[in-house]
Computed example of a mutant assay.
Amino acid sequence: MALHRRATAEGVGTLLLVLAASAGGIAAQKSYGVEPGLVRLTLALVLAGALVSLIVAFGHVSGGHFNPLITALQWLARERSGTCALAYVLAQLGGGLAGGAIGAWLWHATSKPVAGLRWEGFASETVASAGLMLVVFGCMRGSRTETGPFAVGAWLLAAILATPTTSYANPAVVLGALVSAGPVSLGLSSALPFILAQMLGALGAFALVAVIFPKAPRRT
């Protein structure tokens, strides 16, 4: 596969991994405060879920390193060319910086109601939906149908714990939440921003899918 596709997969995968770690840490701190055991447990679940899902989704493209140390050792072992290793490392470092910044931003992104709608969760749902679509399409385009449900479930575990909106990432779930009760219920003022955010995240993911994954055969 072309180097730009593989490097992009490493960059995006590292971004999502670090984003989950950054946002998950903030979420755990907000939920448990000074309870280090619970914070560590939450971070372990977030990182394990994110890493498993991302390796399954992106591994068939780039190897699923998401770590410059792995790439560097492969280069030292002469298993990867210098050009490829450099592209991977630059993508991983850039993805890590972006992921950390976005993870922190998600928990600080606030907005005032506009036209009666609440937009506080817009950023969270955009990122959560984009991540979910990347994992889903990564599994589908890699013909990993057996492990796809496992990868999607692992990603949702990480996203639910790490994102401020607990990752609805599905317009059908939002509509169900309108008539539901309990912690998953939503009001009309939040539903439309959530759905718009999910559509935006899905379209952003679709653009990345076109770069990272070869086009799947057309279904008849």
Rank of each mutant, 00 (worst) to 15 (best):
T163S: 11
E35G: 01
W119H: 14
L97Q: 08
I160Y: 04
A9D: 10
A21I: 04
L54T: 03
G182D: 10
S185H: 09
E35Y: 10
S143T: 06
V34W: 14
S129C: 08
G13F: 05
L192Y: 05
G176K: 03
S185D: 00
L186S: 04
K112G: 09
G153E: 13
A77G: 11
K30Q: 15
I102M: 14
A197L: 09
E35W: 09
L76C: 13
V12E: 00
S31T: 15
G182E: 09
W119M: 02
G82R: 04
L19T: 06
L192S: 03
V136K: 07
L41G: 12
A205S: 13
V114D: 12
L73P: 01
S22M: 12
Q198N: 08
G95C: 07
H60K: 09
L41H: 06
V46S: 14
T147V: 11
R118P: 00
R78I: 00
E120C: 00
T126W: 15
A57P: 08
R78T: 03
A159T: 02
M1Q: 11
A104G: 08
A7Q: 02
W119A: 01
S129N: 04
R5M: 06
A181S: 15
A104T: 11
P149E: 09
V184M: 08
G153N: 07
V135A: 01
P214Q: 11
P217E: 14
V136E: 05
V61K: 06
G153V: 10
V152M: 15
L38E: 11
L188C: 10
R5Y: 07
I55Y: 12
G153M: 09
E35A: 15
A28N: 00
W119T: 02
G82H: 07
A23H: 10
G59N: 07
L203Y: 15
R80W: 02
G116E: 13
F150V: 15
G153C: 11
A7M: 06
A130E: 06
T165H: 07
G94D: 05
L132K: 05
W105L: 12
E79P: 01
A210W: 01
Y88L: 05
A115S: 10
L38F: 09
L45D: 08
R118L: 07
F122N: 02
F58M: 15
V89L: 09
L38W: 13
A87M: 11
P149F: 05
R141I: 04
E10M: 13
A50H: 01
G148P: 00
T83M: 07
L45P: 04
A7I: 04
G33E: 07
A207K: 12
A216V: 06
G182W: 07
